[in-house]
Design a protein around this nucleic acid. Structure first.
Length: 887
RNA sequence: GGGCGGUUAGCUCAGCUGGAAGAGCAUUUCCCUUACAAGGAAGAGGUCGCAGGUUCAAAUCCUGCACCGCCCACCA
């Protein structure tokens, strides 16, 4: 084995091993309980970023843990076609070649899309393999493959036939750059600098004017009312009056509506129902007209010739000039306001009227709320339940159509005449182009040109992955066995966009939630707490981290800081620490393997803990195993990671391996074998517990330990979780005495500048027989770890001028240091010890003097304080006696 | 405006079903002791954001406040 662990040499081998041997494939097996996870499908345009690395590491840890527990574990891989995002990537590429989408035409363009997706769409899958993900690759799915597409069509048709999908002209969020509608949740709001124009709107009767403030003066041409707050005294008398809308020949009325904030600007709001979500709501409440003045190309329409056809920016300029000229402009103020942007391309969103397909979600959301309230879906952490329900309560109908080409084309067919003109027959929802119109008998049809929102197919993911729609649900074995899945692991940023919709569709089509648990992981931030983004240039590439530190280090670092639902800051230091941990494990294993030699493969089966430290490490191990397993069970992977780190490094390496060296070097073959058994046993069992987080290094070591080609993650185990031995408490206590002695002697040596090479003598002044027995039996530990050559037990030790002393483990310990001791320094050191003890005395004294404490605190607590007090006092007395001796 | 988090050692964070302040990194001293210098040993470093309250006892529970952050919402 190499002195340093080199991940490069082992990682490729193991990910190949897992895939080639189909270690993580799963089949319907009714004799075993399934544990199922569906991957949040990454976009085909994507390459692995830290968020993916975190999210998939967590899923992998869970799936590996469950598999080892004996579940029929299945983690299904797949990718998402990614609608607008993907189309715009390819569009840009074609543009570089001088090819324009519209010149190509729909079919040719889609050919190019598929070409590109087949060529580069699997990059991220290869990266997931490198991350070690235990996915069942035979089930690899794509949201636009045949099965998934059929499921989408089938779902659409079912919803359409139930009357839940309808077409309507509504105000939608329009992205002028992508030239498509967006759902509300696809709009991101950003604070931006803008201007607030104050415009005078004159009353028709010439009795003056009302001033309104707007950030979008060009929309005034579409105003159909002025709204004021119902409890605004200033405007009370104006409600109902008529206004001459400037720059037009239209008249509008002053109305009242509660949405108006009377303290903002002038407290009077111009209402443009066709171009503002807020105004749309007001218009609905007040039956206002909708006048569209901006079309989907961002050009002015339905306006006087002067403005017709201008772009929004041009119109704004001209209109502001005209208002100024007409004396309608009162003033302009700078303002910070939030502006809606396209979540994909960051263009400013234009709310406007457009014909779209909508899904009525009121029924579905009610069912989803009920499911969450009945805890059919449980959130990890639970704090997300409330916002989730709140969101569902306020949900509006979902605009599911998009005016792009890449995606699932809406399976709606219109009956047309020979010239291709649509007839009045109602549209037909069907899997394929119908043969005959049931109304007019016509045979010519035209399919709706829109495609579905990407999230529509994503919402079906838990169903479509198990071939929903291919046959009757009752006959679908895959679906019946694996659905509902066990846990969904995803980032909280797509809780509404994706998770809530999967729940709604699951309840709608299966009458059952799609997953029992929802684990929401946080966002990975850089070391300054900033979100990683390309524009900030603070992106840490997980591939680079794997190259530099190893995949296990990446996984461990992420797992360790992945507190459920909480963001995390991560940097090279975390990866470095994790890499060092991997190396520590490697070297501890190397030490054990080297010492075991040829016997290795027979070791670790029958442990017989004889010595105190054996029993101690066994007790510590079982305790840790129980805790780690418990943490995995509730998805507290960060806690599990820290427990393993602490046990392996601090307990196993720093204490047990160090203590084992005595017996390993001895001539006593039986003692040697005995300690090796325990070393190998603990190592192997700890590797099992660690393998879900660090599968590569644990597999590699496991292979050497077992001298055959089996991966640790195959081994089924109960993780030794219920084996805490009876002797645990006593052993822990006795060991703590020895540790206290060793640490104190070491400290004394270090502070007296005694060279590590020099062995010293230790004289124990005995006060307690039992403790003396413990030390006697384990004197070799002290000799080994504190570099002590000789131990003596005495009563009322003769104090010596040349001895340093300490009080530890209930003893007064003298260390003769002739020629090495600096009495002055030793006095200072002892004085410091006294000072510490004095603080302790103060604290305990206060408590014990408190009558109420003595009355009300539990007995054990009082005893604890009393014994602490006693120990502190003894320490002081002993040290003082020694100091007095020196005087 | 509503909701949710955070504030603990120089940095990143644990601890929060209440009973002596923890880890990693950084830092100081000593050590290349044949598992590991990507290491070991010892040390220094914190009135746990502020103010109240509950309690014998509060980093931990409650109430305010301050600052930071996130999500949702129809402030033009």
């Amino acid at each position: 084995m190499d002195k340093v662990y080199s991940p490069q040499n082992v990682e490729a081998k193991w990910s190949r091993f897992w895939i080639e041997n189909k270690i993580f494939s799963s089949h319907v097996d009714k004799s075993k309980k399934p544990f199922t996870i569906i991957i949040p499908p990454p976009n085909v345009t994507g390459s692995l970023h830290m968020g993916h690395a975190l999210n998939n590491t967590l899923q992998d840890v869970i799936i590996r843990f469950k598999k080892m527990q004996g579940f029929n574990a299945l983690w299904v891989p797949g990718t998402d076609h990614g609608g607008i995002a993907t189309q715009s990537v390819v569009e840009k590429l074609l543009k570089k070649e001088g090819i324009k989408k519209h010149e190509l035409g729909r079919e040719k363009f889609l050919e190019k899309m598929w070409e590109w997706r087949n060529k580069t769409g699997d990059t991220i899958l290869e990266q997931l393999k490198r991350l070690g993900c235990g996915l069942d690759w035979d089930r690899l799915a794509f949201t636009m493959d045949e099965k998934r597409s059929e499921a989408v069509k089938k779902a659409f048709i079912e919803l359409f036939n139930k009357g839940l999908i309808y077409r309507g002209k509504r105000i939608v969020n329009w992205c002028p750059s992508c030239a498509t509608a967006l759902a509300d949740s696809e709009v991101e709001y950003k604070e931006e600098k803008g201007s607030l124009w104050y415009i005078k709107y004159p009353f028709s009767d010439g009795s003056g004017f009302l001033v309104v403030a707007t950030t979008r003066p060009e929309t005034m041409l579409g105003d159909t009312a002025i709204a004021v707050s119902p409890d605004d005294e200033r405007y009370k008398n104006f409600v109902g009056k008529t206004i001459d809308l400037p720059l037009t020949d239209r008249k509008i009325k002053v109305i009242k509506d509660y949405a108006v904030e009377k303290d903002f600007a002038t407290g009077a709001l111009k209402v443009t129902p066709a171009h503002s979500m807020a105004d749309d709501a007001i218009a609905k409440r007040n039956n206002l007209d909708y006048i569209e003045v901006i079309d989907i190309h961002g050009k002015m329409i339905n306006v006087s010739a002067k403005y017709e056809g201008l772009t929004i920016a041009q119109a704004r300029k001209v209109i502001v000039e005209d208002l100024e000229e007409g004396g309608f402009l009162e003033k302009v103020e700078p303002i910070m306001h939030s502006v809606g942007q396209c979540y994909r391309c960051q263009s400013v969103i234009e709310p406007l009227m457009s014909d779209q397909w909508f899904l009525n979600v009121s029924g579905m959301s009610k069912k989803a709320i009920a499911a969450a309230q009945k805890e059919q879906t449980i959130f990890f952490p639970s704090s997300w339940k409330h916002p989730y329900i709140l969101w569902l309560e306020n949900i509006k109908d979902w605009c599911i159509s998009r005016q792009i080409w890449w995606g699932h084309r809406i399976p709606i067919y219109y009956c047309v005449d020979a010239q291709g003109v649509r007839k009045d027959c109602p549209p037909i929802a069907a899997m394929e182009k119908p043969n005959k119109c049931p109304v007019c008998g016509g045979t010519l049809f035209e399919q709706d040109s829109d495609v579905l929102d990407t999230w529509f197919s994503s919402a079906l993911w838990p169903l479509s992955l198990f071939d929903w729609g291919q046959k009757e649900n009752k006959e679908n074995q895959q679906l019946n066995y694996y659905y509902p899945t066990s846990i969904l692991v995803t980032g909280y940023e797509i809780l509404y966009l994706w998770v809530a919709r999967m729940v709604q569709f699951g309840l709608e089509f299966m009458k059952e939630v799609p997953f029992k648990h929802i684990f929401l992981n946080g966002i990975v931030r850089d070391k300054h707490g900033k979100k990683m983004s390309k524009s900030l240039g603070n992106v840490v590439d997980p591939i680079e981290v794997m190259d530099k530190f190893g995949t296990d280090a990446l996984r461990f670092a992420l797992a360790q800081s992945a507190s459920p639902g909480r963001d995390m800051q991560i940097s090279d230091e975390s990866f470095l620490a994790a890499r060092n941990f991997a190396n520590k494990i490697w070297n501890a294993s190397r030490f054990i393997i080297m010492n075991a030699g040829d016997e290795l493969k027979n070791l670790g089966q029958n442990i017989r803990p004889i010595r105190l430290c054996d029993k101690w490490i066994v007790a510590e191990f079982y305790q840790m195993a129980k805790n780690v397993k418990g943490s995995y069970e509730v998805y507290e992977i960060d806690v599990a990671a820290r427990q393993l780190y602490d046990f392996l490094w601090t307990k196993f390496c720093d204490w047990y391996i160090e203590l084992s060296k005595g017996r390993l070097a001895s001539e006593d073959a039986a003692a040697r074998k005995n300690v090796l058994e325990i070393l190998v046993f603990i190592l192997k069992e700890t590797l099992k517990l660690l393998s879900p987080i660090m599968p590569f290094i644990t597999s590699e070591i496991w292979e050497i330990l077992n001298s055959h080609n089996y991966s640790v993650c195959i081994s089924q185990t109960d993780f030794c979780a219920n084996k805490t031995p009876e002797y645990a408490d006593q052993v822990l206590f006795h060991m703590s005495i020895l540790q206290d002695i060793i640490v104190n002697i070491r400290s004394l040596r270090s502070q007296m500048n005694v060279s590590p090479a020099v062995e010293v003598k230790a004289i124990f002044n005995v006060f307690d027989k039992t403790k003396q027995e413990v030390v006697k039996e384990n004197a070799d530990y002290i000799k080994l770890l504190a570099k002590v050559s000789d131990i003596q037990f005495v009563k009322n030790a003769d104090r010596q001028k040349n001895s340093a002393m300490c009080v530890a483990g209930g003893f007064e310990i003298f260390v003769p240091l002739e020629g090495l001791i600096d009495i002055q320094k030793e006095k200072e050191r002892l004085q410091k010890e006294i000072d510490f003890a004095l603080v302790e005395i103060e604290r305990t004294k206060e408590k014990l003097a408190n009558k109420k404490f003595l009355e009300r605190a539990p007995k054990t607590e009082i005893e604890k304080i009393q014994s602490r007090r006693k120990a502190a006092q003894e320490k002081i007395d002993k040290i003082n006696a020694n100091l007095a001796f020196w005087e």
